[in-house]
Write a protein that binds this DNA or RNA. Structure first.
Lengths: 156, 156
DNA sequence: CTTAAAATCATACTAAAGTATGAGTGTGCA
DNA sequence: TGCACACTCATACTTTAGTATGATTTTAAG
């Protein structure tokens, strides 16, 4: 019984609504035509009611547009194209071996302290390397250094 | 003149339509009432016309409901191929529009001050956005944020 | 209309990054 | 041998980044 109700909920609702609407129309007809003969008002009421019906029907029944967004889920193929490091550019910029190591770790998002611990040197040493790197790359910040060096292909 | 037309295009269209409708109604009234007195048919026509009007108005004026279906499609791509932006991941991380803008500029190596000037907001605002970004990305620094977001493909 | 999220900004603080300068140590090479 | 250079480190300083908290304003959605 409950299942039946749920299944035909809409149909029932619409049926009852339409029945109510018919009653309303009959009443209006009686009220205006039989009693007062106010034809124009009656027509106006009919128009208003059916406009509302149209609006209501549309809102209820129109299928929502379906936007299908295809998201491409990336699956990386390991080592299909070995990223080529631009050694010529490294030589051109005269970046030393140690500076390259610092630059790599920088690009991984490590802090100067973490780089220092990773390379077993002091924080000050890393700062010195950093400053030298920035000067050679002609940038002002580590974020720029990472961006530029990736763009130039001198790190992965 | 052209600008005027474009601006009031809708209004004009609706006005003309309504005028046409009125003519139709007058004609119907004349046809059925004066000539054949088919009252019920006249009422029926009115009802039909205004139901149609309601439907038409609703379709024209109401924003279309949209259901968004996200279909994930696996795509194999080598790392060298410029990865397209992973909108699903952005949604997953709940990064807002503004946060994405800040993240983009961060990845370009801009300082918070430069980002603030670029987006015409205060330095403090950029700092707030930054902190929110770091929290959502579960990182501690801007360099990590850039690294991770590039790895996830949520920025170029 | 009301609620919730997003965006804005401020103040005050701590932490990290970056600069400037100087200096000691090892290494390869002319 | 000495000399340039890479690497190391320190001190002292300035600048930028990041955190915490609270408040106001816009905007989107129910």
């Amino acid at each position: 019984m409950q299942a039946f109700y749920n299944k035909y909920k809409r149909t029932l609702l619409y049926g009852i609504s339409l029945a109510a609407l018919l009653f309303l129309l009959r009443w209006l007809e009686f009220r205006f035509l039989v009693l007062s003969h106010a034809m124009d008002i009656y027509i106006g009421a009919i128009a208003a009611i059916f406009t509302a019906l149209g609006i209501w029907l549309t809102l209820k029944l129109v299928k929502p547009k379906t936007n299908t967004i295809v998201v491409e889920k990336e699956v990386y193929l390991p080592q299909t194209t070995p990223a080529q490091i631009n050694q010529a550019e490294i030589d051109n910029l005269a970046l030393s071996k140690r500076e390259m190591e610092v630059l790599q770790l920088m690009a991984k998002g490590l802090s100067n302290k973490e780089i220092a611990d990773g390379l077993f040197v002091s924080l000050n040493t890393v700062k010195t390397h950093s400053s030298n790197i920035f000067e050679k790359l002609d940038v002002k910040r580590r974020t720029q250094a990472v961006e530029k060096s990736k763009r130039l292909g001198i790190i992965v």
